[in-house]
Simulated scan of single mutants.
Amino acid sequence: MTLDISYKAEHITQRELEILYMVGMGYNSKQIAEQLFISELTVQTHRRNMVKRLGLRNTHQLIVWAFKERMLSV
């Protein structure tokens, strides 16, 4: 899986891209928080903001969107 940090920059921040990548790798919010040295609540807020900003319903749709947009790849 790769991370394209330049794509969709107007929609997703660098930190959100990091979180999106880690969610795609199967990490949960607690694990992401530990890896990025931020709180679990901050991770959840970033996830919620991405879902809302993109007009999606949940994180599953966010991951599907990211693959379709080629922000994440296998």
Rank of each mutant, 00 (worst) to 15 (best):
R57W: 12
V51M: 06
S73Q: 14
L17H: 08
L36P: 00
L56H: 06
W65G: 06
R70A: 09
E16F: 02
N49E: 10
G26P: 13
M71Y: 09
L3V: 01
S73W: 15
M22S: 01
H11D: 15
W65F: 02
K8H: 12
N58M: 02
Y27L: 10
G55M: 00
I32R: 05
G55K: 03
V51G: 06
L41V: 12
R15W: 15
K30Q: 11
Y27E: 02
E10C: 08
M71C: 11
G24A: 03
Q31G: 04
W65Y: 11
L62F: 04
Q44K: 13
V23A: 10
I63S: 06
R48P: 00
Q14Y: 15
I19Q: 01
I32D: 05
I5G: 00
S29N: 07
H46C: 06
H11G: 12
R53M: 09
S6I: 10
Y27V: 06
S29M: 06
L36R: 05
T59H: 14
F37M: 11
T2W: 15
W65S: 03
I19Y: 00
H46G: 05
K30Y: 08
H46E: 02
T45S: 13
G26A: 00
Q35L: 11
V51F: 01
Y21E: 04
I19S: 03
Y7H: 11
S29H: 09
E18T: 04
R48W: 12
M1A: 08
